[in-house]
Amino acid sequence: SEEELIEKAEKLRKEFEFIWNGIRFIIRENADEIRRFEELLKE
């Protein structure tokens, strides 16, 4: 039914948001290391 689809979509959206926030947190935490690594690659 349509309601089930909406519920599934909402659940997926929440899971995606949770994963995305996790990725963003990891990137933020490691931003300095990532930048340093990029500098090494440029040399």
Rank of each mutant, 00 (worst) to 15 (best):
K8G: 08
R35D: 08
S1M: 12
K8N: 10
N30F: 15
F18C: 13
A31N: 06
E4Q: 08
L12Y: 02
I27H: 00
K42M: 10
S1D: 11
F16V: 06
R24C: 15
L5Y: 07
L12M: 04
E15R: 10
K11W: 03
L40I: 09
I27F: 04
R24M: 08
F37Y: 03
E15K: 11
E4P: 08
E17W: 13
E17F: 02
W20D: 00
L5T: 05
R28G: 12
A31D: 08
I34H: 01
A9R: 04
L40F: 09
L41F: 10
N21M: 12
E4I: 11
K14G: 02
E10R: 08
L12V: 10
E3N: 11
I19R: 00
E33N: 11
I6S: 08
E17C: 14
E38Y: 14
I26W: 11
S1Q: 08
E17T: 02
L12P: 05
L41W: 12
G22N: 11
E38D: 04
R28P: 10
I34P: 01
L40S: 02
L12N: 08
I27E: 04
E39H: 03
D32I: 11
E33L: 15
A31S: 05
E17Q: 05
W20Q: 00
I19P: 00
F16L: 07
L40M: 06
I27K: 01
E38I: 15
E7L: 06
W20T: 00
I23W: 02
E17V: 02
E17I: 10
E2Q: 08
A9H: 08
N30A: 15
I19A: 01
F18S: 02
K42W: 13
W20F: 04
R24G: 07
E29F: 14
E33I: 15
R28N: 11
A31V: 06
K8V: 09
I6L: 12
K8E: 05
K42E: 03
I6A: 05
R36H: 07
R13V: 11
F25N: 14
L12S: 06
E4S: 10
G22H: 13
F18P: 00
F37W: 07
E10K: 09
N30H: 13
G22P: 00
R13Y: 13
I23F: 01
N30P: 05
F37D: 01
D32N: 10
R36V: 03
E33P: 09
E38M: 13
L12K: 05
I23D: 03
E29S: 10
I26A: 00
E17K: 01
N21W: 13
F18E: 06
E7F: 01
I19S: 00
A31L: 12
I34E: 05
K42P: 03
I23L: 11
E2A: 09
G22E: 14
G22I: 15
E3M: 10
A9L: 14
I26Y: 01
E3C: 14
E10W: 07
F16D: 00
I23V: 04
F25P: 07
E3G: 09
E15Q: 10
I23H: 03
R24N: 08
I19L: 03
E17G: 04
E38V: 14
F18Y: 05
E7T: 11
E43C: 15
L5F: 08
E15T: 15
E7W: 00
E2S: 14
I23S: 00
L5R: 04
E4N: 08
R36P: 01
N30R: 09
S1E: 10
E3K: 11
K14H: 08
L12T: 04
E15V: 15
R36L: 10
S1C: 14
N21S: 12
I34N: 01
S1H: 06
W20S: 00
F37T: 03
E2V: 11
E39K: 09
E29L: 14
F37L: 09
K42C: 14
I27N: 02
F18H: 03
N30T: 13
S1I: 13
K14F: 13
A31T: 07
A31Q: 02
A31K: 03
K42L: 10
I6V: 03
I26F: 08
K42I: 09
L41K: 01
R13E: 08
E17A: 04
F37K: 00
K11I: 07
E2P: 05
I6D: 06
K14C: 13
R28L: 13
R13I: 13
F37G: 02
E4H: 05
K14R: 07
R35V: 09
F37N: 01
I6M: 07
L5Q: 07
K11Q: 09
E38L: 15
E15S: 11
I23T: 00
L40K: 03
R35P: 03
R28Y: 12
E4D: 07
E15L: 15
L40C: 14
A9N: 09
E38P: 05
E7Y: 02
E43Y: 10
R13T: 05
F37R: 00
E43F: 10
F25G: 12
A31P: 04
E4F: 07
F16Y: 02
K42Q: 12
K11V: 01
L40D: 01
I23E: 03
E33C: 15
I23Q: 01
E39Q: 05
L40Q: 04
F18W: 13
R36C: 14
K14Y: 11
E38Q: 09
L40T: 02
F16I: 08
N30I: 15
E2T: 11
E10M: 02
E2D: 07
I34S: 02
K8L: 14
I34L: 09
K8W: 13
L41N: 01
R24K: 06
R36F: 12
L5P: 04
E7M: 03
F37S: 01
E3P: 03
I34A: 03
D32C: 15
E33W: 14
K11R: 10
N21H: 09
K42A: 11
E39D: 05
E10G: 08
R13H: 11
E15P: 02
I6P: 08
F25T: 14
E3L: 09
D32G: 09
F18T: 01
E7S: 12
R13M: 09
E2C: 15
K14V: 12
I26Q: 01
F25E: 14
A31C: 15
E33R: 11
E4K: 05
I23G: 02
R35K: 10
G22W: 15
I26S: 00
D32M: 05
A9I: 12
I6R: 10
R24P: 00
R24E: 06
I34R: 01
I27P: 08
S1K: 09
F16Q: 00
L41H: 01
L40R: 02
N21L: 14
D32K: 06
L40P: 01
L40E: 02
L41P: 00
K11A: 06
E15D: 06
I26P: 04
R28T: 12
F16H: 00
F25H: 13
E15A: 15
E39W: 04
E33A: 13
I34W: 10
R24L: 11
F18V: 08
G22V: 15
K42T: 08
I23R: 00
S1G: 07
E38G: 11
G22C: 15
N30K: 06
N30G: 13
I27W: 09
R35T: 02
E33H: 10
I26N: 00
N21T: 07
N21K: 03
S1L: 07
E3Y: 04
K8I: 14
N30S: 14
L5I: 06
D32V: 10
E39S: 02
R13C: 15
I26T: 00
F25A: 15
L12C: 15
W20V: 09
F37I: 03
E43M: 07
E33M: 15
E38T: 12
E7G: 06
N30D: 04
R24D: 14
R24V: 11
E4A: 09
E10F: 01
E43T: 07
A9P: 04
N21R: 06
L5D: 05
E33V: 14
E15G: 08
W20P: 00
I34C: 13
I6T: 07
E17D: 02
E15I: 15
R13F: 13
E43G: 12
G22M: 15
E10H: 04
D32Y: 05
E43W: 10
E17M: 04
E39P: 01
F25Q: 14
E10S: 06
F16G: 01
G22K: 14
F18M: 06
R35N: 08
I19V: 03
E39R: 03
D32L: 12
E3D: 09
I34Q: 02
E4V: 07
E29P: 02
R35M: 07
I19H: 05
A31F: 10
R24S: 11
L12Q: 06
E10A: 04
L5M: 03
R13Q: 12
S1V: 08
E33G: 07
I23K: 01
E29K: 08
F25V: 13
R36G: 05
E43R: 07
F25R: 14
R13N: 05
L40N: 02
N21A: 11
E29R: 05
L41D: 02
K8H: 11
K8P: 10
I19E: 01
E43I: 12
E43V: 12
R28K: 09
E3I: 09
K42D: 11
D32A: 08
N30W: 15
N30Q: 06
F25I: 12
K11H: 05
K14A: 09
